[in-house]
């Protein structure tokens, strides 16, 4: 049994592919290998995400209520799902696995500012609710009616292997039929988001006409996308 199991898993893995992805860094947005936004000298994260949001004609007023990291994660997911819809899946069959380095520290610092001074002590529920990294997953699930498996994992640097190992487990055991996997990191004006939509080959046939050639879903390809862009 020990000899056959790894082969069995590898065979299944061959059928798992990245059908769309987005990668957002400080002043640049890449979707399915295409550069869709680039502007030199952007220094402010808030301005940057707003410009991209408007350029892509996304209409979702809740966006303006979100903290920086949820805005980034939301945007990255929207760009992916514009390329490739998940409308054909049951809500429970879609999973979301996200990760980052600083958890919600960017917003934690904002909440901490509201309680530092006893003479102006105004902790706010609308800030505090975002002091958890998985709120990003919550926002994405609300927008896209996703109800399946979720997990938010923390690692010092992007860890494609960890994401793939966990997502593979979910696919292998039929816990998900599609999964959004990625990294959403914001600290001040520095940001980096990579979101990939992972599907099985048999379900990915209704691909968009964008000419993107789906890639095998594995740690090497996830790390490659992260480094190349």
């Amino acid at each position: 049994m020990g000899a056959t199991l790894p082969l069995f898993i590898r065979k299944i893995n061959m059928d798992r592919i990245i059908t769309a992805y987005s990668h957002i860094t400080e002043n640049k947005v890449i979707v399915n290998d295409r550069l869709i936004f680039y502007q030199e000298n952007i220094v402010n994260f808030a301005d940057f995400v707003k410009i991209v949001y408007k350029q892509e004609m996304i209409n979702y007023p809740r966006f303006y209520k979100m903290d920086a990291i949820s805005k980034l994660g939301f945007l990255a997911v929207e760009l992916v799902l514009k390329e490739k819809t998940i409308a054909g899946y049951r809500p429970e069959a879609v999973g979301v696995i996200m990760s980052n380095s600083s958890s919600s520290l960017d917003t934690d610092i904002a909440h901490n500012e509201t309680i530092k001074d006893r003479s102006s002590y105004f902790p706010s529920p609308s800030v505090f609710v975002y002091t958890l990294p998985n709120i990003i997953i919550g926002e994405v699930c609300i927008k896209n009616k996703i109800k399946g498996e979720n997990a938010f994992l923390i690692s010092e640097a992007f860890n494609g292997k960890l994401l793939c190992d966990y997502a593979d487990e979910l696919f292998d055991n039929k816990r998900v039929e599609a999964c959004l996997c990625g990294w959403v990191e914001v600290m001040g004006n520095n940001c980096n988001a990579l979101v990939a939509l992972v599907e099985t080959a048999d379900r990915s046939a209704d691909s968009s006409g964008s000419g993107f050639k789906p890639m095998l879903f594995n740690a090497e390809n996830m790390n490659f996308i992260m480094k190349r862009n």
């Binding site: 979301v96 919550g138 609300i142 896209n144 009616k145 109800k147 498996e149 997990a151």
Partner: peptide, 21 residues
């Protein structure tokens, strides 16, 4: 198993159907 309500970021599902699932 793990699920998401897809309903609200700080309040639970009204029906509990996602926890049930």
């Amino acid at each position: 198993s793990v699920s998401n309500d897809a309903n609200h970021i700080s309040g639970p599902s009204r029906t509990g159907e996602e926890l049930s699932w």
